[in-house]
């Protein structure tokens, strides 16, 4: 036999609602397509829903201090995560991040030639090769004559 006062009834109904919301969120957050654009922001948004659900659960479980504390702190975490992702990993939306990554991966040809010329390595290699080129050609031709015989 189920017996409850009005206060306990409200508490129980709120806890059951929070539990249903949590199950729906846990299914939905995994079914979200990972290849979709801005999926990280979508997941942070879903996490905001579960934050408020947990605040209601904390208050209904008889711990309002924890609920109020988390109600104040949850937006700061969500903002920090979104801000960190945008400035650290978001290659689609953050234009400065893509420019930096392109510069890191593919340096320009002019910069490379300038660096080599300034180091002095290019001239010495060129002089040695120009002297040895004629000898290489002679040896190749003599090899061909031997093959014909």
């Amino acid at each position: 036999m189920i017996s409850a006062s009005i206060f306990e009834l409200i508490q129980s109904v709120l806890l059951i609602v929070v539990a249903i919301i949590t199950i729906i969120i846990s299914i939905g957050i995994l079914r979200l397509d990972s290849d979709m654009d801005n999926v990280v922001y979508a997941r942070i948004h879903i996490l905001g829903v579960i934050d408020i659900a947990s605040v209601i659960a904390f208050i209904c479980l008889g711990d309002p201090l924890l609920g109020v504390l988390y109600f104040i702190l949850a937006p700061f975490t969500a903002h920090a995560m979104a801000h960190g992702y945008f400035h650290g990993e978001d290659l689609k939306n953050n234009q400065s991040l893509t420019n930096d990554s392109n510069n890191d991966k593919k340096p320009k040809k002019d910069d490379i030639t300038k660096e080599i010329e300034s180091s002095g390595f290019y001239k010495t290699v060129k002089e040695e090769n120009s002297f040895d080129d004629s000898n290489d050609k002679i040896t190749v031709s003599t090899l061909k004559i031997i093959e014909d015989e």
């Binding site: 189920i2 306990e8 508490q11 109904v13 059951i16 539990a19």
Partner: peptide, 10 residues
């Protein structure tokens, strides 16, 4: 108790 059931469900 209804509250206990809801806590377990939670």
């Amino acid at each position: 108790n209804l509250l206990l059931i809801s806590k377990i469900f939670l």
